[in-house]
Nucleic acid binder design. Structure first.
Lengths: 144, 144
DNA sequence: TCTAGGGTCTCTAGTTACTAGAGATACAAG
DNA sequence: CTTGTATCTCTAGTAACTAGAGACCCTAGA
């Protein structure tokens, strides 16, 4: 049913990640150096696909390479201490929470605009005023 | 109580955005060219601070300059047609929803790790396996 | 067996989005 | 008038890709 080994082109098509980018991730150590075929081509398997997918999602979500490296390390090194894991995970959890609340505010504002527009009302858009303020970062999210 | 006009240094401290970056945003048109003082320094006011804050949040959330430009245009041009606004807002709303669901999955996984660690259990971390899979995205990912 | 096509390889250089530094100017305090 | 701080413009460097050149490998068809 499934191929258990595949080429870089296949990996690229599956993930939507461009081939040079995959090789770039390998160079900077985000992706492991995969085994090579007799013809020297990279040979990947399912775990590579999962890892690349994870990296891509993280990039889209605005995490930089260091952050991604830390997140990957959480899985790569089960031998590291629980204290270290907790601390790193806690830090990232806070970042993630902040991003969720900002995105939620942005979402409600976009929905508001769509609704207002569909209702045919010409309304001044207040997206910046509502979302840019520092006070929105932690808790407050005003919808509507 | 509040200064109504301030310098680029003040703006930088308020937002945490570096001075050269502010000037860079001005060059590429994300920030407007502010009026100048007699000594040729840039003079900002509250709306600039809000706009810069918004831009920064968007960058952190992984939006690129074009996306930010579109979001800003939603507020800058109240004269544009409702259809255009709806379409742009709708597109970004879908992106935002996708990001929220990914971040939510990441969040629950981080929380799980923290809890497991605090409980002292040595547990294999499955963050990638649980989050990287295609099935976690609501609709199919659009690679850019 | 030759060869055309496609996919891969490495390496280099370009793009986007900043970021840091050099050198000059403005201005308030001592 | 000098010292210090902040600003100015301009250029060059960094991070994270991305595209292109030229060579190698491998399968299929003549």
């Amino acid at each position: 049913m499934e191929e258990i080994e595949f080429t870089i082109g296949h990996l690229s098509r599956e993930t939507g990640c461009k081939i040079p980018t995959i090789r770039y991730y390998e160079n900077i150590g985000l992706m492991p150096k995969p085994p090579r075929s007799t013809g020297n081509t990279r040979v990947y398997e399912h775990s590579h696909l999962q890892r690349l997918d994870f990296i891509q999602h993280c990039r889209e979500l605005g995490f930089n390479q260091n952050a991604i490296r830390e997140l990957l390390d959480l899985t790569d090194r089960p031998d590291q201490s629980c204290a270290a894991v907790t601390e790193i995970a806690q830090t990232h959890l806070e970042t993630v929470n902040q991003r969720i609340s900002r995105l939620t505010a942005l979402k409600s504002e976009l929905k508001h605009m769509i609704t207002a527009c569909e209702g045919g009302r010409i309304e001044q858009c207040r997206i910046i005023e509502r979302l840019a303020d520092h006070s929105h970062t932690t808790s407050r999210t005003q919808a509507k």
